[in-house]
Structure formats: structure tokens, C-alpha cells
Design a protein around this nucleic acid. Structure first.
Lengths: 232, 232
DNA sequence: GGTCAACGTCAATGGTGTTGGCATAAGGAG
DNA sequence: CTCCTTATGCCAACACCATTGACGTTGACC
């Protein structure tokens, strides 16, 4: 029954210690993250998660109303990592840059998890709580209200979007990247020569793109454009 | 056996017409796209796909070596849609803007499919073929070689990253968005008041963020920053 | 006409998320 | 102390999933 929302009430009631309670939301999320890191995206399942916790698969459903709910919690945990112990310096541009790189870094630390959470990357509790921080920084920089909102919006979505994309690339097993290279050669061999005159020069770039993130570049471009708006 | 790579050889051999052949790679991809659009992300499975094709589930495996392979093909189909019939105008900034919006638009036309393909969004045949086009535009604008690569890289990855993120948001069922709103209220009610002094002003922005994409803004900021680099 | 490869089906395997029912034990109430 | 509520965990079961090996069929080519 969908009405079995045990975790909610458990969180609310806050019974002092419980008896020999073995599991916690935090412990489950943590274990799930470890499983993802160690056994890949397909390594996470209710059964295996239960086993790793020394419990039954169905036990997980006492804490999360479904796999979706668990993944949501994982996604928010990543964002919590990003914001942990962060302090503003007062320099809006440096602060935003730092925050952006933190978010990116936190997601890339758990690539498999990041990919899994791609479908629910916005609107989670910790992420929502972080929005005020970011908006505060942008507003504090002196942008007009409408501009502040636009810049905040572009900044946070760009950060999350790149985090997902780069995590996905990072999560690809080596075999898949090599398979891709084969596909590339195949593709180019099939296309008329006129459409790929620069293949010799382009190919290395494609490989480089798989290994380096464009996020720092894109982030700096966004910040410099914002800065120009402010001074201009 | 993994060596049963029938589709590859079938593509290569190019046997004239086949007999009463019912299925094609293109037809299967097209059907899969329709299923995703109509029945959501969970509506796609080998069984249902086979059924929709008037065939058996296992038949799909004659054409794609697995679900991964099919999803890869779907992802590339989206990119092919984006580039279809595109023509350069000679104005690099307008061309890039047009291409970026096309990519974004093509993915958002199939949100469920876009989310599904998040894990393999780079390195596909059509996408790789499009890279030369983009690089050509950037180089033609007069950027130094290193700058051209940086800008090409930032542009294409930003476009794809936003496409995925925005598709994911768009693919969320209404119920999930409302559930999120509840979570927001819950979160804010739990946090100390000092950390969310602006909730009244912030909340509408969060809702707006779920409904509008920041991609055009981010794209324009990237282009204006690039332009400044060129003239400065 | 004979051979072979492509196509499609059938049946089976080992996995998945999820749920209802049952047992257990802690905490509070009397 | 006993009773009762409630959280917790396990068991068994359901429906579904992707994938594969064996098997027939049918067309195309030599």
C-alpha cells in the first residue's frame, strides 16, 4: 500500500533511540553510494542493498517508499557534500566560482550515482536550501532583481547540467570508450569525404573531450559575461 | 553469444531488399521513440517494444546487441533530428546560437528519451559527425586554434548538458513536481529561520525554474563572452 | 537445386522492484 | 507488573524484466 509511509512518520516522531535499531536513512544512503562506487550502476538493487546492510531487500522499503525515493535521497546527499562547510568570502565572483567547482567536484566524486540521479537533480531539499545562498551572493553583487534571477538560474542549472554530463562520461567503462572510437572510425569511413575534411585534426579533440571537462571554461565565460553586465 | 553481431554485418552487407523483412533499425528506433513519448520512460521494454512491432521481444536482439545499444541509437537519432536540414549562414554567432537551440529543442521534443540517453550522450556517430561542423564554424570565426577548441568544447557540452537537464525536468510527471513542493515546504519548516529569510521571495523562483529553461541565457552569455574574446 | 545466412519464435534463466502477512521487541499506559 | 501500540525486520510471492540458445522458415546467391 502506498500509504505505508513509515519513514516520514519515523522522521517526524523522533523516538529517542529505538531499541536494537540497525538501520538509518543515512546509513542506507551511504551504503548505496558505496555499492554504486564499487559495483557500478547496475550493482545497486534492493536485494543487494539489503544484503550489504545485513538485512532483507524488503527492509529498505521501511525507510524509503521506493527506489525512486532512495535515488532522490542519494542525489541530495551529493549536493549536501558540495555545500558542506562552505563559507562566503564576500567576493561574489570568487564565491560563485568556488561553489560551482564544488558542485561539479562533488558529483564527479560519485559518477555512477550522479548518472543515476540525472532525472531528479532539481528540487531536492538540500539543493533547494542552497538556492537561497546562491541567490544571496548574486543579489549581494549588485545586480538588478531581474538580472540576479537570470544569473542565478543560469549558474545553478549550468553547474548541475555539466555535473551530470561529465559524470556520465566519467562513468563509462573503458570498454565503452574504445567501442565508441571504433564507431567513430566506422562513421567517418562511411560518410562522404567532403563532410569530414578535418578528421585527422578533429579526432584527437574528440578523445580529449572524453577526458577533460569543459565546465571550468563554461563557468568562467558565464562569470565574465555577468561581470561585463555589471560594469557595463 | 556476444558474437552474434547481426546488425553490424547486415548494415555492411547491404543486401538489396531482403524478403518479407518486416523490421528495420530505423523502424525500431522510431517505434521506441513513440513508446517513450506515449507511455513514459518505464513504458519501454523489449517485450512491449516487440509487441508494438508485431513481433517477439527477442527479435529486437537481432537488430541491437542489447538495450544499451538501442538507447545509443535513440540518442543519436535525437541529434540527427537537431542537425536535419541545417545550413550555415556565415554569421558564426547566429549559426552557433541556431545550432544550440536546435539541439536543445530536439531533445526537449522527446523528454523521456532524452533522460534515458543521459549516460551516453557523447561519442555517437551523428553527434561526432556534427562536431566537425561546429568546429568549422568556430574556426571560421577567426579564433586562434587553442581558443577555438575551448569554445567548441564548451559550446557542445553545454548544449547537451542543458538538453538533458531540461528534458529531465520536463519529463517529471506533475505529481512529482507537486511532491517536490511539499518537500520544499517541509524542508523550510525544519530549517532554522536564519538560513531562509527570503523564502517568500525565493519560492516563486524555484517554481519558475521548473518551468523555464536557463539555456538561452547561458548560451547568450557564452556567445557574448566568446565575442568579447575575439574583439578584445 | 543446394547451401547459407538472415529472420523470427519459443522456452527458459536469473535477475528486478514491490507488497502483504507474520513475528518480534521496545516504549508507554494502566 | 501486564497490556497494547508501534516500529522494525523477514518470508514468500507476484509480475515483470533483459537476455540467450535451440529451432524452424524463407529468401538470395552460386
Amino acid at each position: 500500500m502506498a500509504k505505508r509511509v513509515v519513514p516520514e512518520s519515523a522522521r517526524r516522531r523522533r523516538r529517542p533511540t529505538k531499541r536494537g535499531q540497525v538501520l538509518t536513512h543515512a546509513l542506507i544512503v551511504e551504503t548505496a553510494l558505496r555499492m554504486l562506487r564499487e559495483h557500478g550502476a547496475d550493482g545497486l538493487s534492493a536485494r543487494r542493498l539489503g544484503l550489504a546492510l545485513g538485512a532483507d531487500a524488503s527492509t529498505v522499503y521501511r525507510y524509503f517508499r521506493g527506489m525512486d525515493d532512495l535515488i532522490l535521497a542519494i542525489a541530495d546527499e551529493l549536493f549536501r557534500h558540495a555545500m558542506e562547510d562552505w563559507r562566503a568570502t564576500g567576493d561574489w565572483r570568487a564565491d560563485l566560482r568556488d561553489l560551482g567547482l564544488r558542485i561539479h567536484h562533488a558529483y564527479l566524486a560519485h559518477p555512477q550515482a550522479a548518472v543515476l540521479t540525472a532525472s531528479r537533480v532539481t528540487g531536492r531539499p538540500n539543493e533547494v536550501a542552497g538556492d537561497e545562498t546562491i541567490l544571496g551572493i548574486v543579489r549581494g553583487a549588485g545586480f538588478a532583481d531581474a538580472d540576479a534571477v537570470r544569473i542565478y538560474h543560469a549558474f545553478i542549472d549550468q553547474s548541475l547540467a555539466f555535473a551530470i554530463l561529465d559524470a556520465a562520461t566519467l562513468a563509462l567503462p573503458k570498454a565503452a570508450r574504445e567501442a565508441d572510437e571504433e564507431v567513430w572510425r566506422d562513421t567517418y569511413a562511411r560518410l562522404p569525404a567532403s563532410t569530414h575534411p578535418n578528421i585527422a585534426a578533429t579526432a584527437p579533440l574528440l578523445v580529449a573531450r572524453m577526458n577533460d571537462s569543459a565546465y571550468p571554461t563554461a563557468l568562467d565565460m558565464l562569470l565574465s559575461s555577468a561581470s561585463a553586465q555589471l560594469t557595463g
